[in-house]
């Protein structure tokens, strides 16, 4: 299987590729893909969530392997020890005080994670993104000083949450700087924007990302990754259910 590490690893492990590795034409697809192949990754990070009641910060450690396995462990006081495990097919939540793992399925996936602008579903989708979306190159635009391709991706299946995605992919580095999610009729649902990147031997990885749910009033979530390491050895059992409850 092809391993890709997403730009916003951890929480956005899968969300990000659905945004940023958008492909239009073989070339852009291949190059954007190439940019994001990571064997493994590890990072600490924080999530700054702003909503109508104010701002709160959650910190976490995260690991990922390939594009489909990831683990987040929260370290901030309010949710210390809580884990979110994504395996190839499932999403599990581990709570230190709960004796059983909670398998997220169906409408449970639509809940927001820790009250952020990211839903659990955002973390799971996008597996066969290319087969699920028709991609159209709209043109080119400059985003914060970066020349980007503008691509419109239109879902050809109903099972993806976002029927339309508009992405801005850097012409040089093939990094997706910005993405907007729309309903079929074109109403803006979510907006994602990369604020900071880090250079790993010429490959750019986003370390600060802003996500904003446009269906809620005045909310945004900022994800920051610190100490990002890629292609490092990771315990094979890291992403198994047995390990989840240690």
């Amino acid at each position: 299987m092809k391993n890709r590490l997403l730009i916003v690893m951890t929480i956005l492990t899968v969300l990000a590729p659905s945004l940023l590795s958008a492909l239009t034409g073989e070339e852009i697809v291949r190059k954007a893909d190439d940019m994001q192949i990571f064997e493994t990754s590890e990072a600490t990070g924080e999530m700054i969530i702003k909503d109508r009641f104010g701002t709160k910060v959650s910190t976490f450690n995260s690991w990922s392997r390939g594009s489909e396995e990831s683990l987040i462990e929260f370290t901030s006081r309010a949710e210390r020890g809580q884990k979110v495990l994504r395996t190839e097919d499932e999403l599990y939540l581990f709570y230190p005080d709960a004796e059983e793992l909670i398998r997220m399925q169906g409408s449970m996936l639509r809940q927001s994670m820790l009250g952020s602008d990211v839903s659990y579903e955002d973390m799971t989708g996008g597996k066969d993104r290319v087969s699920q979306y028709d991609v159209e190159l709209l043109g080119e635009e400059n985003v914060k000083g970066h020349d980007c391709y503008v691509l419109m991706m239109t879902a050809n299946v109903r099972t993806v949450p976002y029927p339309k995605e508009k992405v801005w992919i850097d012409k040089e580095t093939f990094l997706g700087w910005k993405a907007e999610y729309y309903t079929k009729s074109g109403r803006l649902l979510k907006e994602i924007e990369i604020l900071k990147v880090e250079d790993f031997d010429g490959r750019l990885v986003a370390t600060e990302t802003r996500i904003s749910d446009k269906m809620k009033t005045d909310t945004e979530t900022i994800m920051i990754l610190h100490d990002l390491k890629i292609d490092i050895p990771i315990d094979d059992n890291m992403f198994s259910l047995e390990e989840l409850s240690w």
């Binding site: 109903r158 993806v160 309903t183 109403r187 649902l189």
Partner: peptide, 14 residues
Amino acid sequence: FVTRGNGGFYEAMD
């Protein structure tokens, strides 16, 4: 009204 269409996609209607 924001809802999920048949299949799970987001839909918003005015």
